[in-house]
Design a protein around this nucleic acid. Sequence first.
RNA 1: UGGGCGAUCGUCUAAUGGUAGGACAAUGCCCUUUGGAGGCAUUUGUCCAGGUUCGAAUCCUGGUCGCCCAGCCA
Length: 573
Amino acid sequence: MTNLNPESNAAQTQDAPTPTNFLRDMIAEDVRTKKYGDAQIQTRFPPEPNGYLHIGHAKAICIDFGLADEFGGKTNLRFDDTNPEKEEQEYVDSIMADVRWLGFEWDRLCYASDYFGQLYEWALRLIKAGKAYVDDLSADEVREHRGTLTEPGKDSPYRNRSIEENLDLFTRMKNGEFPDGSRVLRAKIDMASPNINMRDPVMYRILHAEHQRTGNQWCIYPMYDYAHGQSDSIEHVTHSMCTLEFADHQPLYRWYIEQLGIFPSQQREFDRLNLTYTMLSKRKLLEFVQDKHVSGWDDPRMPTLAGIRRRGFTPEGLRAFCAAIGISRTNGATDIEMLEHYQRDDLNRRASRAMAVLNPLKLVIDNYPAGQVEFFEVANNPEDPTAGTRPVPFSREIFIDQDDFREVPPPKYYRLSPGKEVRLRNAYFITAQSVVKDAAGNIVEVHCTYDPASRGGNSPDGRKVKSTMHWVSAAHAITAEIRLYDKLFSKADPYDLEEGQDVLSNLNPKSLEILLGAKLEPSLANAKLGDHFQFERVGYFCLDPDSTADNLVFNRTLPLKDSWAKIEKKAGA
RNA sequence: UGGGCGAUCGUCUAAUGGUAGGACAAUGCCCUUUGGAGGCAUUUGUCCAGGUUCGAAUCCUGGUCGCCCAGCCA
């Protein structure tokens, strides 16, 4: 069952009508022809608990849960925990939390390890049917016998053992009589198959390893191919969607199910998500964490769901993105701009506005009475009148951003410069009069005059200003730490490498910039974890869990689109 | 190079033999108390060569290019 909240459903339906895709068409056809009788559509999301979920998994989750939901079906969360050497409870916990955060709730929580007993029984059945055998070849020898892409393999000398001997040996494998790697159970299919997966694939290997759920109960563990389809079948999964690299496994998936004569789950593959400037390999991400190139799985620069959540991304925005990118069988890379667009789109609708000055420059309004304070009632969200207002204090000395003042304004610069009049958002028109510089010639203070008649931000005489700037009252400002994040990689394709280089060499050295002296309007002292803010004219921000009462830390989720930056860039180029 | 899968604007995708459309990006204009948001407009595409057909992105043939597979990982 999915649990999309009404707001996000509305958001999705008001977008362009979702185009169809081959998976939906396939399911619709199966429903139409009653391929599974009156049984409901059943899907599953089957992560291995060996790492954190990332944006690529979000696409799979949206497909697995979304499609089932569309057809009134159900989705199981199943942990594919068949390799105890890589799996941990920490990952199980994070995966459950991430799926829920994305907005989905599973029907049944399952583990492949729940089926170890059944899988073992079925293995015995295949042995008795002459369809599986114990092989004593070493791993190296198995590889040598497998052949190559262009040459057929050779039969193992153990391939034609008697059923009795196979039964005896496999039982003893299970009973722990043999060391790791000494024997495997293999399906007896075809060593000359052009599909290497069909060249007598390994079904079970010996692993004297403790499993996070079954402990030491087993010392033989099923391989993915032997476990996955049967697990689907046990759960009566009608449509088992997976990524393209498993397409070659489909014949094997079907072979096991046919030999066993069990519920005919069917596998169908779709393309994996690739994003520009992003690494979506669990193995590499684990490396980043272990080698401390990032602070952890939830580093806000990580493409993990835990990372982007901490960064301030919303599940609604992510789901809209997943719906927009569609599903196909091509291999390309989606522009990260598209991900960011759907985040901004969602954040713009719901983020509370606030004023924050990241790089403060003091501004003194010389004709404003010293010691006077007034409060302006300011809209929390111009996009949403129901969001209400808040009081924002104003006084003689305020902070503006250094970017908003130029002693010598470049062409098309609308912001403050000597003699120029601008609007302080929601407050007054001001005109810059003079600057104060330090010994090194840096501007440390700007002096202005204000027009008392422009209170609220409009002049009664109707004169216009070209710019509106945000500000924070110096006496009331709270100081905070701001973490500005940028892309983790500096190349659109992280794998675009010189000979012998690793993706690490494409890491963006400026992916994190920390600002310690930012000045925020006082209401931000009440920010809570999980709140989303738009710092007006700057970007979207959220409170980081590193925050303490006397050191607030805000993460920049994304900057606002900045057309001035474009103009500047063009002028410079 | 054996097998599998694929190729449509710069990018991601629709069109299921009958008008090549949308989104993102880009560009220009309008609007704006966020150079945000919004509105309008514009640009760019069916891998190539043949064939079938009244009509082909779609079907056929032959190329070309890309991705995946030789774990006792998933």
